[in-house]
Amino acid sequence: MTDKQKLFNSGILTEERPGAVSPPRDLWENKKNGLVIIECPQRIPCNPCHTSCPTGAVVPFDDINDQPQIDYSKCTGCARCVAVCPGLACFVVDLTWGDESRALMKLPYEMLPSPEEGRQVDCLNREGNVVAKGTIVRVTEPMHDKTKVVQVEVPKDLVMDIRAIKVV
């Protein structure tokens, strides 16, 4: 077994996999409010990302085990899927945020301490290593069920690495 496979087998996305979807770069660069990234590389019986999507951007599933497919022309970056996904596998990235070097990520958060606007956070990669500091811009609770969607300003070149935050 290769090291990449080992990592993947323990829950770390190691390369392009079916079900790991990210937006086309040209559309993404100019899309205000951001577009969704989904990391759901396994067929499992689950579809709340589709049923909760208000614009139909998460296209209907033929089979409940299907992995989500995105019609990026319809995604508005609303982050409802981020809040509803039981596997916390959806993230929104807004590349139009701030200056050249910054971007805004909308990440699911179900931990303590409570996230507050303006607070500094550690940005964690898929292995839980701190890769940058970020600043909380806004906190919402789209489903009113205690799963928060935390909007964090992060270094733009790390949007494909950062997958969690730690409020410190």
């Binding site: 080992k6 087998n9 996305l13 499992i44 931990m111 964690l124 898929r126 292995e127 839980g128 969690a164």
Partner: peptide, 23 residues
């Protein structure tokens, strides 16, 4: 086993919080 038995997304959730999984 040589891979997680549960859903991969559940493993990803704990991995990104820094929990090692020893296969």
């Amino acid at each position: 086993m040589d891979k997680v038995g549960g859903y991969w997304v559940h493993a990803a959730k704990v991995r990104r919080l820094g929990v090692p999984i020893y296969l």
